[in-house]
């Protein structure tokens, strides 16, 4: 699995496809974190995890789509199982999303004037995990493995992301953003955020299994 992840990472870096979504994320996140001196830390996490949701979906779809189908077959033969190859893609997309959001979000907060408690930090980690996991889950569903045509994939992505972001109270994304925006200092924030993260990870697991099932039928 480590070897597969290294290979997937190398393919991603060589293709430079990660740059578009990551640069967009960095640009938007900097705007949020830069203009938030007088705002409670938790209130930043909401919108940033929302942006991470969109960008990690984009990154995941790009990562899956960049690999040529014939080369994917070769990787599957070497790995022994197609699920391993898919899992490596999921892990790399997730790791990349969390790394970029983590560095961007926590470095300036630690260096700057904000007083940040361990609870705040934990909420931040869980919020980013929620955004990244849900994003990767959507990214898999709209990738070439499930939806062949880019037009349909894009429309499906927009519909799913809008539904998850704007449906009132729907976990994990909308619920998380509302939680962090309207009750940023509530004592019950940590368990609630953990709940959203758990839903997001479950969504990711379901999406991975679904994508693997569809891809296997198509092969």
């Amino acid at each position: 699995m480590i070897a597969l992840c290294r290979y997937t990472m190398a393919v991603m870096l060589h293709s430079q496809r990660y740059m578009h979504p990551m640069l967009l994320f960095v640009a938007v996140a900097v705007i949020f974190t830069g203009s938030s001196d007088s705002v409670p830390v938790a209130a930043i996490y909401g919108p940033v995890s929302g942006v991470l949701f969109v960008c990690s979906a984009w990154l995941t779809a790009a990562l899956v789509n960049v690999e040529d189908p014939v080369r994917r077959v070769i990787s599957v033969v070497h790995a022994g199982r197609s699920r391993s190859v898919l899992l490596a893609t999921v892990l790399v997309a997730l790791a990349m999303s969390l790394l970029v959001s983590g560095v961007l979000l926590f470095a300036p907060l630690l260096i700057g004037d904000h007083s940040i408690t361990p609870d705040d930090l934990m909420v931040g980690v869980l919020a980013q995990l929620t955004g990244a996991s849900t994003g990767v889950a959507i990214g898999l569903i709209v990738s070439r493995l499930v939806i062949r045509r880019t037009g349909y994939a894009l429309v499906t992505a927009l519909v799913l992301m809008a539904a998850l972001s704007f449906t009132q109270g729907l976990p994990p994304i909308n619920r998380l953003i509302r939680l962090l925006a309207y009750t940023p200092d509530a004592p019950g924030l940590l368990p609630a955020t953990a709940g959203c993260a758990a839903v997001a990870v479950a969504l990711l697991a379901a999406s991975t299994l679904f994508t693997d099932f569809i891809a296997a039928r198509r092969d």
């Binding site: 190398a10 393919v11 060589h14 040529d68 014939v70 080369r71 077959v73």
Partner: peptide
């Protein structure tokens, strides 16, 4: 497994 054509588009 050796495919009939090896996809050329790879920078590695």
């Amino acid at each position: 497994y050796v495919p009939d054509r090896f996809p050329p588009d790879e920078r590695m």
